[in-house]
Amino acid sequence: MSAATLYALAAIALWGTLASLGTSLSHLPPFLLTGLALMIGSVMSWPAVLRNRQAWAVPARTLALGIYGLFGFHFLLFIALRHAPPVEANLVNYLWPLFMVVLAPALLPGLSLRPLHLAAALLGFAGAAIAILGARNAGPAATDAGYWGFLPALGSAFIWASYSLWTKRVAAFPTTAIGLFGLVSGVLALACHALLEPQASLSARDWLLVALCGLGPLGAAFFLWDMALKRGDARQIGILSYITPLASTALLMLVTQRPPSWTIALAALLILSAAVMGSRIRA
């Protein structure tokens, strides 16, 4: 097994815990949680910056893109997990591989949208629709407020897809720069918390979970993923990423004590099948 594959699988394993951690910390204000976790996640790049200040030297455009991706994606995901049944919201969020297929011709020059692209996108949206309809059987969370919560889930998927594509249109940046993206995004989120949200106190358990969130899915996973993409075939590594929604959803079901249902299973199958189909289409 290549080093690139190992890095990718390690990132996927960490991302699989994000929705469960976010749900366990749902009592914290979302800006506070996002800010603390992103700042903690940036810590891993600090030693490199102390050795070489150029480790964070990126153009303003690249920094803005990093803030858009890291801050925007995670904030909307946490909002979705608070206002929609978490399992269904998690599945809708994982439409981002399909969004990448559909948006690629618009955001990247030289690419076209083929019939198979559209077929994969429609299959993915069918899975999302089944996930949303399945929320009717989710209990108290399946209310009008719950359906509203799917909008930020779709928004987070769009942001991550567009961020991933736009990184190919900016100058190449070192992996350590992701720490800068996380630090600035974290400061921005904490500023929003101070201005817009009520103050909150964290218990020892909260701090432990926030630290795990920051060091894992909002920290090490980004560095590992970037290292994988720099060392391997992005198409092959991209296929591996479709393990994430299944692992994440399975773990989230255990945490929320949700029994398996045919709607969840069918939605997961459709979204995964669509993502794999889209990944196999040559540009």
Rank of each mutant, 00 (worst) to 15 (best):
L18S: 10
A247G: 10
F78P: 00
L251W: 01
I178E: 03
Y163F: 15
Q54E: 04
S201F: 05
A55E: 00
V187F: 11
V187S: 08
A89I: 04
L91P: 06
A3T: 06
S185R: 10
Y94F: 15
A171W: 00
L70T: 08
L123N: 05
L224K: 02
H83T: 14
L123I: 11
G66A: 14
F222P: 03
L116Q: 10
A106N: 00
Y7V: 07
A274D: 00
G149K: 06
A120R: 10
P260I: 02
L28F: 11
F99E: 06
L212S: 09
M277S: 07
G124D: 12
G186F: 02
A220P: 00
R51F: 00
R82W: 01
I79H: 02
A267Q: 08
L107I: 11
R231Q: 12
R205A: 14
A121F: 15
V101H: 08
A153E: 07
V43H: 01
A142Y: 03
S26F: 07
H83K: 09
A80H: 04
A120V: 11
T143A: 06
T167P: 04
A247E: 03
I40R: 00
P105W: 01
M44L: 10
G238A: 10
A172F: 00
L208F: 14
A120M: 13
L154P: 09
A129P: 01
R235N: 12
F99C: 05
W262E: 06
T244R: 06
P174V: 04
F125I: 10
P115L: 11
A120E: 10
R51H: 07
D226F: 05
R136A: 12
P47W: 02
A13N: 13
V101T: 14
A8S: 14
L113H: 12
V102A: 15
S273Y: 02
F158G: 09
M100A: 15
G66L: 09
V255I: 12
I12G: 03
S248L: 02
L76F: 04
T5S: 09
P97A: 04
K230F: 00
Y242I: 11
L28K: 07
V170E: 08
